[in-house]
Every structure is written in structure tokens, then in C-alpha cells.
Design a protein around this nucleic acid. Sequence first.
DNA 1: AGTAAATTTGCAAAAAATTGCAATAGTTTG
DNA 2: CAAACTATTGCAATTTTTTGCAAATTTACT
Lengths: 249, 249
Amino acid sequence: MLKEERQQLILEKLGTDKKVTLVELGQLLNVSYDSVRRDVIELEDRGLLKKVHGGAIANSYLSMKASRGLGIANNEFNIITKKAQKLIENHSIVLMDGGTTNFYIAEQLPKSLEITVVTNNPHLATALAEHPKIEVILLGGSFYKRYQITLGSKTMQDLEHINADLYFMGINSIHPQKGLAIRQYEESLLKQKMMSVAKKTVSCVIEEKMNRVENYKVCDVDDLDYLVTSLNPNEKILQPFKGKSVEIL
Amino acid sequence: MLKEERQQLILEKLGTDKKVTLVELGQLLNVSYDSVRRDVIELEDRGLLKKVHGGAIANSYLSMKASRGLGIANNEFNIITKKAQKLIENHSIVLMDGGTTNFYIAEQLPKSLEITVVTNNPHLATALAEHPKIEVILLGGSFYKRYQITLGSKTMQDLEHINADLYFMGINSIHPQKGLAIRQYEESLLKQKMMSVAKKTVSCVIEEKMNRVENYKVCDVDDLDYLVTSLNPNEKILQPFKGKSVEIL
DNA sequence: AGTAAATTTGCAAAAAATTGCAATAGTTTG
DNA sequence: CAAACTATTGCAATTTTTTGCAAATTTACT
């Protein structure tokens, strides 16, 4: 079996199942665990899927684009999106970086909304082409394929000239004591910069990211202005965040 | 067995199977491994299939054309792409802006190519994620939805810091006297800027764009270094361009 | 025809890529 | 915390690619 063929099959499988384990793939394709693992790494570097411990999950941008219009609604995302929209309404310049949640929020924004969105995520920029009244500013820089965003000193510089009202920060983990963190060092620097050029910062977090701790800390929970989750404010998982200065939605 | 015959059979096989290994082909056609390998390389150069380690994979254009019974031998884009690749080979920093032709050229670049591509077209950036050795720099600025590129003074500024070797200029029309032109005023300014930061400028033009005149002139034909078309150099439509300083490919 | 030039073909040796394995290190889960 | 699972690394076997070369074939031209 050709390597390319295998990789194509992996992507197809992911397109339907959204997730696969490496062992499964090995059996399905009749090759060693190592081969599929190496394939998955390669595909992740190209931004075509996301590798997780034990397997891989579909690339969120791609699958969202694919499922768009099919009425496939994700409840958790929808709750967060509703709350996020309330925040946006009063702000005219919104900064949004990478991550599935941000992408989903942007896509679902009302068509009538008149705001400016500044982003380092090309997928988000092209998706917003559907919104006639939203002006989109794309941040330049070197394109980091794995996470499909622009990054680096050029992107940082671009931010110098931005004064945003609200920043939607995508994040990999949030923890009451250890703060908000992300996987890439460069990305953490960028996010800090983004915070500094925005009046207010909000982070929309799905439940699975709570109480985990990723590699590079971006800021403390206290540095956030708003925290949006799909949870009921009384949930016990939210209690440790209650004493903070952040407003929980 | 004639070479043409063999290559035709290879394409047919690919049309039905979507993939073949070279060993398979060698046995099927009863020729040496080397011959089929060389055939496959040639076919790839013509953009008719995708060569991968160990074999070949049908290219989407092939299946499209083949199913319609069209002549697959030489589509206009493929001829242009091949010629464009020759130009790129000796350059390390390539500037490419919007337009279908540029997108197609970028997509078809060899996977082994080690260059940097600077672009204001986010789609091109994400498509190039497939090419592990190509570094992509995305130009920032306000995102112009209609043509799906970034534009404006920020994009212009970004260009100040670029010294490109070769600029692929997408264009809407070309005329021997009236020069190269485009539909948007802002875009024409940007293209002029791009020309100024690149050592050489090349434009790849399909036949339908020749001898038309669009709204905003970017430059004269003489300002171009190379003009790539799918036409035979002796075609009468090209004659008016012959006296110019541009090199016609 | 007949010959020279160009192209094509198959072969062999060396270089490069791919693959599976095993030992080790790291993660997750109950 | 330990057991089970997963990831990483280095390695060796295998397969594929590349390169140069010489024989065979085709093409072009007189």
C-alpha cells in the first residue's frame, strides 16, 4: 500500500468518524502501528488533523466547513456562542485568534452585525466572507501550518497598530491557580501581545479544557475580563473561579 | 510498445483504480520498472497524475476530464504550470498574489521544492500546507472578500520588508499597447508595489485574457520580465508581443 | 535507402525513503 | 501507585529513487 493512499484513507475515515485510534487504523489498513503513527504526525504537520494521545481527531476547521449547512449543531458550542454574541454586540473592533471555538463563534455571528474582526487565522477570515457587514483584517506573518495561523515577529508588529475593544482568546487549558495555557511558546507570546492591545479579554472555554494544564502559560485567570463557558454558574467545577476578578458567563 | 501507448494505458488504469504502484505497472505493461517510472515522471510534469513514493495517484483533474471524454493531453493550465515551474526552480523567494492561475500553479508545485512563498491570498497559504518544504509568509491587511485577498496600505507596508526574487502577477487582461490591467484600483496599486519589490516579474495568462482591456492598468507589457502562455510562440495572437522586451514562454 | 543524431530503454550501483521491531520512556486510568 | 496503554528512539531490512552508462530504437535528413 502506498503511503499517500494510506494517508488519504486516514483522512477519509476521520471525515466520517471524527476520531480514530492508531491501533484501529493499523488493523484497518493492515500496517504496523508505527506507520500509521508516522502518517498521523505528517498529516498533523500539514494541518489536516489533530493528533491526540492514542489516536487522531478530525481537523476542526475542515470538519466544520464540511458540516456547515448540514444542521449539525454542537450544543456546547452553541451555548457558548450565544453568550459570546452578547459580549460582541457592544464592541466594534474584535480581535480573534485561532482555535475551534473562535472559528465557530465567528461563523455563527449574525449577518447583520457591523463590526471589524482582526485575526491571524486565515480560515476565519475566509469564513467571514459570508458576512457582508463585517470588515476583516488579517494579520500577516509566517504561516504556521500545524495550527493554521500566522505567527512570529511580523504578526506581533502588526498588532502594534491595533486598538481592539475585545479580544477572544483561544486557549488549550485553564486552571484556577495555574492560569491559561497553550501548547506553543511562540503562540503564548502572541496571545500576551494581543491581550495588551485589547481593552478587554474574553476566553470561551469548553468543559474538557478546564482544570488541565498545558505547557506555556499565557496569563492568570485574574487577567481575564470575561470567562464564557457552557456551564451553569453554580456548577462545582466553576467554584474555584468564583473568587477571581473575572466575570463568569 | 510505444511510449505514447504505454502512457495512455497508465492514465486509463489510473482513471479506474485511482492509484497504481510502479511495480504493478511494469508487470502489466511488460516493460522495465525504469520505463514506467520515467513515464510517470513525464505524465506528472504534464500535470496528468500525481507521482508518489512507489507509485502514482490519479489527479482530480484527470478524472474530471477523462469522465467527460475530453482530451486530457494538454489543458491550458497544465502547460502554463509546467513552464512556470521551470522559472521558479532557480528562485528562492517567490511572491504570488491572487487569481486562479496562481493558485493552480502553487498547488502543483513539486513537494520537494524548498522555497519561500509570500502571498496575500489566504487560500494559497493553506493549500501550500501540503508542501512540507515550502515556507509561507502571509501578507496582512484588510481582507477583500470579493477577491479573497488582503489589500490596502497595511499590505503595501508589509511588502516594504520583502525582497523577492520572482513575482507571479495574476492579471485580468493583457494587451500589447494598453498593457496589463485589473478590475480593482487598490489592487492595481498593490501589484505595482509588488513589482517594485521583486527582481523579476512574470505573468501567466490564459488565452481568454489576451487582447482584452480591463479598468485599471498595472504596467506595460515591457515592464514584465516573462510572459507565460499556453500558446505556441508562433501563434498570431502572440505576434504583437514579440517586439517587446518581455521574454515569451 | 543509408547514415547521423536524438531519443528511448534496460541495467547496475549508490543514495534515499519507508517500514517494522524492540527497548525505553512517558501517560492515562482505575 | 501500579497496570495497561501509548509514545519515542535508534536500528536494520526492505523497497524505491537516482544516476550514469551503453545498447537498442526511432527520427531526421540527404
